[in-house]
Every structure is written in structure tokens, then in C-alpha cells.
Amino acid sequence: MYSSELIKGTLKTIILKLLKNNGKMYGYEITQRVKELTNNKIQITEGALYPTLHLLEKEGEVEAETETIGKRVRKYYTITPKGKVTVDLKVNEFVDFMNTMKFLLDFELDVGHAAK
């Protein structure tokens, strides 16, 4: 399992990407899907998930619809067109970041890449 510091910076990207690929999802479903896809290596905590979902909703990156199930209300989230643009930018940024980190932390010393 990765540390929460590592996950925190990428949480928005993870949520938006999941919503982009899977259509509408609710909170618990998101945590479970992440667990499943990463073999339990990434576990999104509820304490981080819901504040981020609220922020994404306020920023207009996702929109929510509610469904009443018995005595409780379930909130489904879907990505908006704005969110789709953001997620592509974020994924690209993250890939770039990983490449930079790879070089910085000297996993593979790639001089040609560094000179670029």
C-alpha cells in the first residue's frame, strides 16, 4: 500500500479518470474499483474521497444526481465535459511528472532524455 501523501496529490486524477471510463459511480463504488484495479495497493480513504468529490462538484468537473434507496440517499457522480478536458491534462501532466521523477531519482539513467 502506498502512503497517503503519495495518493493525495493524484486523487483528483484518479477519480476523474475512473468516472471518465466507467460513467456514473458512487463513493463506495469508487473506493472498491480503485482497490480492485490496483490489487489493494491503493486504498482511497473516505476522509480524502468525499472532500475531493465535493470540490470537484463545486468546480464543475463532475456533476451529481441522487437516488433514494429505501431510507438513504445515494449520490452518483458523472464527469462533465470540463472534467474530461481536465482529466486529459492531468494524466499528461502526471506522465510527464513520472518521467521527470524517474530521471531525478535515477532509476534509469537516461542521458538522452534528460538533455531533451
Partner: peptide
């Protein structure tokens, strides 16, 4: 909103 989120989440668990 958060109450509903958490309630549903706990119920799911």
C-alpha cells in the same frame, strides 16, 4: 450532502 454520502458509504460497507 456529506451526511448522505457517509450514510450510503457506511451502509455499503
Amino acid at each position: 450532502d456529506l451526511q448522505n454520502n457517509l450514510l450510503d458509504h457506511i451502509c455499503c460497507i
